[in-house]
Design a protein around this nucleic acid. Structure first.
Lengths: 210, 210
DNA sequence: GCCATACTATGGTGATCACCATAGAAGGGC
DNA sequence: GCCCTTCTATGGTGATCACCATAGTATGGC
């Protein structure tokens, strides 16, 4: 097959060699971790490469567009896993908005405790450094929030919320989660998640709920 | 007066020369603005000095401890003005929790619109770069949140909330405000403030409120 | 065995980082 | 008029930044 393809000059590596190392995946995972802890600008490529253990010089082979490309792939990875978590919680609490909200706050709080309050949200960290980001990266961050919000709104609609109400409630919940992360990191305590969970849950309990 | 004071050797500049320039205040204001837009690490001293218009070389005369000291003074300034704003709103809406909350969201949203969604919260930006901050600066950021929260809690107590309820409601409100800022910057629209205001207000309206 | 591809390895690019040493100018106290 | 203090001005420090040029190794197709 290589012959047939080699003749076509357009695409030159279609046949994929068996993956030899996981240097690329390691770099993305390390970048995601460090960006979450330190932020985008404060994290140097030197540190990412060093901590990823992967060979140093080959970085621009895997990421020819450099740091920006690495961040793009890191955020894609992050958003995908965050959405997967939300979908799981949604499935576990189908039709029950209060249980859904409580479970989300509990899950996020647990994640922060597990990291000893070191990890922030990758999307939030990038959002706070917008001028350092190129257009493509900014778009992905914004899209990450939109997609996350949509998963939550979908669950609320499944609880009988009107589409408009579901959207605004989802938007409020996402914002509350982001804010809680900031506070929790400073307080090194998950109490703010508890406070916000109560506030958010009370909202959908009153008689006129629908 | 200068004679009498000059005799005391302990303090050597009590008598204050007439302030010749406002280079120092300019540097703090410029730092605050840039830190809010770009973040702490991403903002270089070079840029601060250049944009502040003040003379370049004299920076370490005014801020002998360098960037960290500048950030400390910037955040002190920021926290003080934020608390003043909250106190004003509190006084204008005494005894009315719902009005208080709505007015806060409206004020913060207006500030974001006025800056064309460029300004983040200085405390939040610093909180997201904790590893780059020294202990003193971290302490001031944390204290800024505690003090802001206390102003809000105080208002809630004045509305008849129990102390515990007032504290957790205030904590939730602060977190919601921070999260809303992040989202609003990306969406370049204040709608998330509106959504959160509705959610937060509904909480204190149901029959059992107290 | 040969070659193309996949990946590693080294060393260095100019630019920018925070920071500082040193010296000069401006102005009031005496 | 001299001095001390406040403030300005210049130029450069070593370190680190993202990025890249070049060469070497490993592996599978043929």
């Amino acid at each position: 097959m290589a012959i047939a393809i080699a003749a076509s000059s357009e695409v030159c590596y279609v046949w994929r060699m068996p993956r030899k190392t996981d240097a690329r995946a390691n770099a993305i995972a390390t970048a995601q971790r460090l960006f979450r802890i330190q932020g985008y600008t404060a994290t140097g490529l030197t540190q990412i490469i060093a901590e990823s253990g992967a060979p140093k010089g080959s970085f621009y082979f895997h990421f020819p567009r450099g740091k920006a490309q690495l961040a793009e792939e890191a955020i894609d990875h992050y958003v995908a896993s965050r959405i997967a978590v939300l979908r799981n919680i949604s499935a576990d609490t189908a039709g029950d908005a209060r249980k859904f909200i409580r479970q989300i706050f509990r899950t996020f709080a647990a994640e922060m405790v597990a990291s000893d309050f070191q990890y922030g949200c990758l999307m939030q960290n990038l959002a706070n450094e917008l001028p350092a980001l190129d257009a493509e990266l900014t778009k992905r961050v914004a899209r990450g929030f939109v997609d996350s919000t949509e998963v939550i709104a979908q669950h609320f609609r499944g609880c009988g919320f009107s589409p408009a109400h579901a959207s605004s409630a989802a938007s409020a919940l996402v914002a509350a989660l982001e804010g809680a992360r900031t506070i929790a990191r400073l307080e090194r305590a998950p109490s703010v998640f508890k406070a916000l969970a109560e506030v958010s849950v009370q909202r959908c309990s009153p008689p006129e709920q629908g």
